[in-house]
Design a protein around this nucleic acid. Structure first.
Lengths: 233, 233
DNA sequence: GAGTGGTCTAGACCACTGT
DNA sequence: CAGTGGTCTAGACCACTCC
């Protein structure tokens, strides 16, 4: 009874983590070599390696060839934000999703957006503004710029029923992205669209997305008041 | 020449990822069994397993025994937020860190904080308010509640020179945490401390931290206007 | 029941890096 | 150069779960 079925490497992982957290092995300490730990735990070195790799990935250990494995001095805590498709996020919370296209144009971008998209000075990009709502209440305002040279199919995409957010997730394979989170005061446009007072504090997510070769798109998502983003660590 | 030195499993990882992103293997598709891939790539099955494990961890694949490995339908993108010690964050940005203790008391918590800390109704907790500043400018206001029964040493900690933020990182081993990010309007206290107008949009990070047995602490960090949190994905 | 991924082993060689 | 972790292999058994 008392099943306790975790794999061996996970048990070793937990034991080592406990030794770190109990300060039996203190930050900066060198811990035993893999071979020694393998003997202590009565397993193969590969099993130890698996456990220590996981701890290194989590930031608890720092490993270097020849230098050995040390307990990290600053166990940098990493939280994982999952970035969902807006539609899914709303529906998972039990609301009815609706989407409205506000503007859609191909035009030369403002200087700052052009720089972010890394497009030549005189080129044009597609600019889409849209509102996502949850059970009739405005949820998030999407301000989207798409680099058409980087993803040609987007030139003919129909954003009247499918949001750029969703279309891009499904049609643009990307490899890297950078996200910036901040708080901004509602301007006149935001206050109108998101049904709040001008100056109200709004949660803002700015995102730049690359594929292998170029910036695909820049998105500014401005959430309605009261939005909260959750994460575990 | 053209060194290209990545390990074999990483190369396989990249090849498989390319097949996913190029839609040769589409979302929902079943991909070949590990044994078949091992034959295709001319390696051991363990090497394939390592590559596919990594892709599953990243959210690109979903793997189940007997059912096989499928391309994830919604490649849930995960961004990693690293949560630094405030002092480090400020100094890494080239500013001079300063810390000021504002209030420090042991008292019965308000109902909401008490519930978050999961303390009995009539118990007391330690409440600390502090201001962290960067090169003389207010940076973040720390509103901290500490469950003394869960971490007794905190009762005698001196927060006049070391912030709760740092003290807890260094002295409280914790295992789990939950973070909530939001935007709030500055109240009178925030506007005074953070040198901004009442109602200004402020970035807020709320955090609850557990060790194995109990909630250790609740922290509300309210950042000065203009704060931006960055993350990659 | 059978097929798939999850884990483990014992051994080997290699890559990196401190001395 | 030598010591450590990084990777790989060939094979094995097990755990899970679909049929």
């Amino acid at each position: 009874m008392s099943a306790a079925e975790t794999s061996n490497w996970q048990q070793i992982h937990d034991v080592v983590l406990e030794r770190i957290q109990s300060r039996r092995w203190k930050p900066g300490d060198l811990i035993p070599r893999e071979q020694e730990l393998a003997e202590e735990f009565g397993c193969a070195r590969a099993t130890i390696n698996r456990a220590l790799q996981a701890l290194a990935d989590s930031g608890f250990l720092e490993r270097r060839r020849k230098a050995g494995t040390r307990v990290a001095i600053h166990p940098v805590r990493k939280a994982t934000l999952s970035i969902p498709i807006i539609e899914q996020e709303i529906e998972q919370n039990g609301f009815t999703y609706a989407y409205a296209l506000l503007t859609d144009a191909v035009l030369p971008p403002p200087a700052d957006i052009g720089a972010w998209l890394e497009v030549p000075p005189d080129s044009t990009v597609r600019h889409v503004e849209a509102l996502h709502s949850a059970s009739g209440r405005p949820y998030v305002f999407e301000d989207r710029w798409i680099h058409l040279d980087a993803i040609g199919a987007a030139a003919s995409a129909d954003f009247s029923t499918v949001s750029p957010n969703r279309w891009l997730v499904e049609n643009a394979t990307y490899t890297r992205g950078k996200i910036t989170l901040s708080a901004i005061g509602a301007g006149s446009r935001e206050s109108e669209l998101l049904a709040c007072e001008p100056g109200a504090a709004l949660f803002r997510l700015e995102r730049r997305t690359w594929n292998k070769t170029a910036v695909i798109t820049v998105a500014n998502l401005t959430f309605a008041p009261g939005y909260r983003m959750h994460t575990m660590l």
